[in-house]
Simulated assay, not measured.
Amino acid sequence: MEHSQLTVAVTGASGTQGGATARALLADGHRVRAVNRRPIELPGAEAVRADFDDPGSLDRAFAGADAVFLVTTPFGTDLDTEIRHGVDAIDAAVRADVRHIVFTSATNADRGTGIPHFDSKWVIERHLAQATDNWTVIAPSAFMDNVAGGWASRSLRQGKYSLPLSPGTPLKLIAAADIGAFAALAIGRRKEFLGRRVDIASDERTGKEMASTLGTVLDRDVEFDAASVEDVARYSADLAAMFAYFERVGMDVDITRLRTDYPEIGWHTFADWAGKALS
Rank of each mutant, 00 (worst) to 15 (best):
R248D: 14
A142V: 11
S4W: 01
D54V: 07
S236H: 06
V71D: 00
K172N: 09
A24K: 05
T216W: 02
S120A: 13
M251L: 15
R31Y: 00
A22F: 08
V48F: 03
A61F: 07
R49H: 04
R220A: 01
D91K: 06
R259Y: 04
D28P: 04
T260R: 15
A233I: 07
R189H: 11
Y262H: 15
S57P: 03
S120N: 10
A27P: 00
V68L: 09
G29Y: 07
V71G: 04
P43V: 02
A47S: 15
A175L: 06
A89Y: 00
W135G: 02
Q158L: 11
Q5S: 15
T136D: 00
A186F: 04
G76Q: 08
D252F: 14
P164H: 12
S228Y: 05
A142K: 05
R23Y: 03
I174R: 08
D88V: 00
T113C: 12
D97I: 07
R157P: 03
T206K: 07
S212E: 14
E125T: 08
S153L: 09
S153A: 15
I124Q: 06
A89M: 06
L6K: 12
D88R: 12
G266Y: 14
T81M: 04
L239Q: 07
A50G: 11
G114W: 15
L173Q: 04
W151Q: 05
G86Q: 03
A244Q: 15
G76P: 04
L26K: 10
H117I: 13
W273F: 12
T77I: 14
A61R: 03
P39A: 12
E223L: 07
G180H: 08
A201E: 08
L239G: 00
F143V: 03
Y262L: 12
A9W: 14
E247F: 01
V8Q: 02
D59M: 01
D54C: 02
I124N: 06
S105Y: 02
P263C: 02
G180F: 07
T16Q: 14
L156S: 12
H127W: 08
V10E: 10
R257G: 10
A63W: 04
I83T: 14
D254R: 13
P164E: 08
E247Q: 15
S57I: 10
R189F: 03
R157N: 13
A244Y: 01
E230P: 04
I265K: 02
V10M: 08
I115W: 11
N134F: 09
I179L: 04
Q17N: 13
E247Y: 13
D238R: 01
R205H: 09
F69P: 01
A152K: 10
A176N: 13
P116N: 09
T72G: 08
A67N: 07
